[in-house]
């Protein structure tokens, strides 16, 4: 490369941006599934399960994502488990997201008033039916704004995957800048792309926040 910012550079950045999106999707999907399990374990009637998951959450929340990335890539390979940068970054993000989102969702499930559980119980619904038909639909509405807000954080945090050699958007920018020596221009372009990825989601979050707490009202027919 070299010279001034040209189409090839932009293509390279676009490629990096795609990886940022890809990593984010892996984090949401993997982290989301793991977070749901964590949330359920945190409210389990089994005390041991609650304690173990609480410990997991504390441990992960107390560790910087950067360190988790280092551990899963360099740490694991040092003890004989070599994994690809993609696998390391995906696993790290999944673990990280699961601890935070799991706690957010636990809070949302518990925010559904207790009488709702009792009413469902009084109607002879099984535990699974109470959860899926009564509690979760209400918890999901409570959870939507904070979940979307957290997703924005994750998109930005995928930039840490560059430490394991992953060329996502931030790392792509760094590489380009190394040949261009135009840090202000290059990183401005990077910032704009991050903004373009995050802004629609933030907007969505704010819209949902304004509506949160209210049940969705279908127009009354007849």
């Amino acid at each position: 490369m070299g010279g001034s910012l040209n189409a090839n550079h932009l293509l390279f950045l676009g490629h990096g941006a795609l990886w940022t999106i890809g990593l984010s999707l892996i984090a949401f999907a993997g982290g989301g599934i793991a977070a749901f399990i964590i949330a359920l374990c945190r409210i389990s009637p089994n005390r041991a399960v609650r304690i173990v998951t609480a410990g997991y959450v504390q441990l992960i929340q107390g560790t910087p994502l950067l360190v988790i990335m280092f551990l899963s890539y360099f740490g694991l390979s040092a003890i004989g488990f070599s994994i690809s940068p993609l696998a390391a970054a995906g696993a790290s993000l999944t673990v990280y997201v699961s601890a935070y989102l799991g706690e957010i969702w636990r809070g949302c499930i518990q925010a559904v008033p207790k009488p709702q559980w009792e009413a469902a119980e009084g109607l002879a619904l099984t535990k699974a039916e109470r959860m899926t038909k009564v509690i979760l639909p209400q918890a999901i509405r409570i959870a939507t704004p904070p979940t979307v807000g957290f997703m924005v954080q994750i998109i930005k945090n995928t930039s840490l995957a560059s430490v394991v050699g992953f060329v996502e958007l931030a790392r792509a920018g760094q590489i380009i800048n190394n040949s261009l020596f135009e840090p202000f221009l290059t990183y401005s372009v990077i910032a704009v792309i991050y903004f373009a990825l995050c802004y629609p989601i933030s907007r969505l979050s704010r819209r949902l926040e304004r509506r949160s707490g209210l049940p969705r009202i279908k127009p009354v027919t007849a």
Binding site: P115, Q116, E118, A119, V134, P137, Q138, R141, P215, R216
Partner: peptide, 10 residues
């Protein structure tokens, strides 16, 4: 049936 109206709001 309880004192608080426990219909499912959703």
């Amino acid at each position: 049936v309880f004192q608080s109206y426990n219909l499912f709001p959703h």
